[in-house]
Design a protein around this nucleic acid. Structure first.
Lengths: 231, 231
DNA sequence: GCAATAGTGTCTATAAGACAGTATACC
DNA sequence: GGTATACTGTCTTATAGACACTATTGC
């Protein structure tokens, strides 16, 4: 007679999104107010469960990005997995976190699903008294840290910018994400020295007061050589 | 009357391990021969399903490391998630891959579970005609690439070495993992310049023919400043 | 002595940071 | 003119790579 055969456990899989953008020269993250328990009323990252057993994980991330934030065509990449038992009071939930980066957008996100979606300055979201649902504080920290290091070695910074941008706009991205201030003159030299990072596009852009600036767009290269070193 | 409420799908969670070591100055990865379908007889990474719903994912990785490779106390860190639908013919399986690095060990691993465990040169495992089970070829590629970049910025190289080692042994780690040859004189200078990377330990080690070398052990620092730049 | 490995020093090209100075806009 | 922003050039210092040289072993 056969004894009871061991069966592997089945668990719930979720996706969570750290969506970063720049507003008023400050780094912001998109948070939604939870409408259901657990953590009802608390702030949380956009995300949710896989829709069905056949949905691709990154596809689920893009679906949530669209449903909860009304965003499409943004830079998206895997961040990490969070699967500690007990991280979700509803049971064993393993979450795959993604990092998304979007250019500045018109005010309150036209979210269909989450009316309470709002851009929050990262400093506020991570303030000691701020309370985020689940382990989302840790996920935000990891996402921001990932963005900081990717800014050094890849062209991720252009994902924060509109299609065309000036060099000083690009500098603001670096300053906001790294939380430092940079010398514009040295920044010009470095950014132009990274081959294929940015290419000229169109003539000039007027500024409120001062000399017009040249416009650039993202170049073909994604790995920066030489890298943009963080101070 | 309530309509059928939507329920999120439940999936199977696995761990897979990319275990790297150095043998004969070449980078090797631990592979096991599969004893069951699917991919019966093919080579695969050590790994398996979560034992039960309450097992921590990293704990599961350490358990497989011990069961399938007889290894404990090795460097272990999360690598990535692989969850594409269809990657496992048995159904929807999402795998969390870990990178493990071990010092050189006595020949055939004293594996309890997997008798067929064997160290394979990474070049062979990734040769065009080599066939690995599932998407394990991709996972090995990602693991090796992770090791390469971590060698630049962290003290990971010491995890390939026994407790005490000479500088030229450490150089062999870099040469094997990066697949390049380095100038020993510049390597000495750089390795000593990374503060806290290695510290002197014990007097000398005899060599078959030549001047004895000083012994070092891993220092307290894990982030290398300045980094070891790859040629 | 010779061969082999360990370790030090020195030179040079490159890259990074500081910062002077010029150019072009609006007022 | 004054102010603000955009850009260019130069100087100094730190770092990386090439490589000459010395040191200590076994034979």
């Amino acid at each position: 007679m056969p004894d009871d055969p061991w069966q592997p456990p089945r668990i719930l899989l979720a996706v969570d999104l750290v969506i970063l953008t720049l507003r008023d020269a400050r780094l912001h993250v998109l948070l939604v107010e939870r409408g259901v328990d657990p953590f009802l009323g608390a702030l949380a990252l956009p995300g949710g469960f896989l829709r069905d057993e056949h949905e691709d994980i990154e596809a689920a991330a893009r679906r949530e990005l669209s449903e909860e934030a009304g965003l499409t065509d943004v830079h998206l990449e895997p961040l990490a997995v969070y699967g500690e038992p007990g991280r979700d009071p509803r049971g064993r939930v393993v979450s795959v976190a993604y990092l998304a980066v979007a250019p500045r957008l018109p005010e309150p996100v036209a979210g269909t699903d989450a009316a309470g979606a709002s851009w929050t300055p990262v400093d506020d979201a991570l303030a000691p008294d701020a309370k985020l649902a689940f382990d989302h504080r840790r996920i935000v920290i990891d996402g921001v840290e990932r963005a900081r290091t990717k800014l050094e070695h890849t062209a991720l910074a252009t994902a924060f910018c509109p299609e065309t941008f000036t060099i000083s706009e690009l500098q603001q991205v670096y300053e906001a994400v790294w939380g430092v201030s940079l010398d514009p003159r040295n920044f010009y030299r470095k950014v132009q020295g990274a081959r294929g990072f940015i290419v000229a596009d169109g003539p000039m852009r007027k500024t409120p007061n001062g000399r017009p600036a040249r416009l650039f767009k993202a170049g073909p290269v994604h790995v920066l050589i030489p890298p943009m070193t963080r101070p």
